[in-house]
Write a protein that binds this DNA or RNA. Structure first.
Lengths: 213, 213
DNA sequence: TTACAGTTCAATCATTTGATGGAGATCAAT
DNA sequence: ATTGATCTCCATCAAATGATTGAACTGTAA
């Protein structure tokens, strides 16, 4: 049985795909409770009943958005893992930060929604979750920071979480932070990358391997 | 004319003070749209009309919460600034991180609400804002990272923002992150402090020593 | 053409939610 | 006890919001 999400992914020109795209953005800006299906429908130029016809209720649409973002994020983490395979740790970090920062700045609703999910609650708890634990572990592993396959140290996990959070914050908070530093968008992206590398690469290298300190 | 907020602060035993306390927590957990005044009233064991009697409408209550949190945060930044005056940079950072982490873990709704404010929008834009730009500048100054009084470099501002964000994320995201690292609350707080210092102190010190541009 | 599945939308319903009115309770001062 | 101010809550309203219905439109195959 093909879910609306699967149909949307199969045909990017379909109405379902357009709905998914707009829903990602609107949910990303206003969160679950802050978004009304009328807002989504209006942005799409269609009636709310048409939305229901394609996707079911609001919760279904939101969970499809979460699944879709999980999928996209996972794909890109796989991509970056291939790019950095075999390189020394500082290079792995620098390339990962550059790649993921560019990707997330191009799709800020991903960072928005992940942060909403981290730090907010919805009144009716959802059954679907972001794969942060899995992703965090995968990143730690692909960075070569995992010694025993089973026991990843809390310290390493927190380091990885700090890096991911920092990225999401700068991307999701662009509208808030960029006026503070008075930079153009391009400058802000460049400075964000620079700051992330400046802060986190020394932390990781001094923490795991002492080959280059 | 005394606003409800001023009355609440004058008498911590008053009904208005109790309302403010509960409202901080509920708004912090569910955000503005996710919170209903019925939720707040029920948690207080009072009728919604009593809430209106004391505070006016929902927006008023929310803005009072924001003002209150701004006030508390500002006070604590002043406190910490006194504590670190005259010490060398690494000590200033370590003490600030310890103090503010403890404070925010004791009042997580502050981090929650600040993060809500950074990364989400409300449908009707509010007239009241967090004082992040001012606070960021003050922190940079009290850390001795500001060269010219007028032009604070974007790089330094981003470093300070990164540190503040990292703190808020770990505190606000405790329910999400702590199961990932499988730590008790006390361990989680200790590890958070350790990670924050481990990551950010080298970044700041290497920044002010060799290259600040 | 007809038949039919797929799609869209105006109209409508039911619930939630923010807000209000007015009656009653409580209490201090006179 | 009376009065008036303060406070509380039940009942209710109006708007917002999620969801549904049924009619109409579209295109395609027989």
């Amino acid at each position: 049985m093909a879910s609306p999400l699967e149909k949307a992914r199969k045909d990017p020109e379909s109405v379902k795909a357009k709905i998914l795209l707009v829903a990602r953005r609107v949910f990303g800006v206003y969160g679950f409770h802050g978004t009304t299906i009328r807002m989504v429908a209006q942005e799409l130029g269609m009636d709310i009943s048409t939305l229901h016809y394609h996707w079911g209720d609001k919760r279904d649409l939101y969970e499809a958005v979460v699944l879709d973002i999980n999928h996209d994020l996972g794909q890109n983490l796989i991509n970056v893992e291939k790019m950095i395979h075999g390189l020394p740790l500082p290079d792995r970090l620098a390339i990962s930060i550059d790649y993921m920062t560019d990707y997330l700045f191009a799709h800020p609703e991903i960072s928005n929604l992940i942060i909403f999910r981290y730090f907010g609650k919805t009144r009716e708890e959802a059954g679907i979750d972001f794969k942060v634990p899995e992703f965090t572990y995968d990143i730690a592993r692909s960075m070569g920071l995992v010694k025993n396959k089973k026991n990843v140290s809390s310290h390493v996990m927190l380091m990885v979480l700090a890096l991911m959070n920092s990225m999401h914050c700068f991307i999701s908070g662009e509208d808030f932070f960029r006026p503070i530093v008075a930079l153009s968008r391009e400058e802000y992206i460049a400075e964000t990358k620079k700051a992330l590398k400046f802060i986190h690469i020394p932390a990781f290298t001094q923490g795991s391997d002492q080959k280059d300190k």
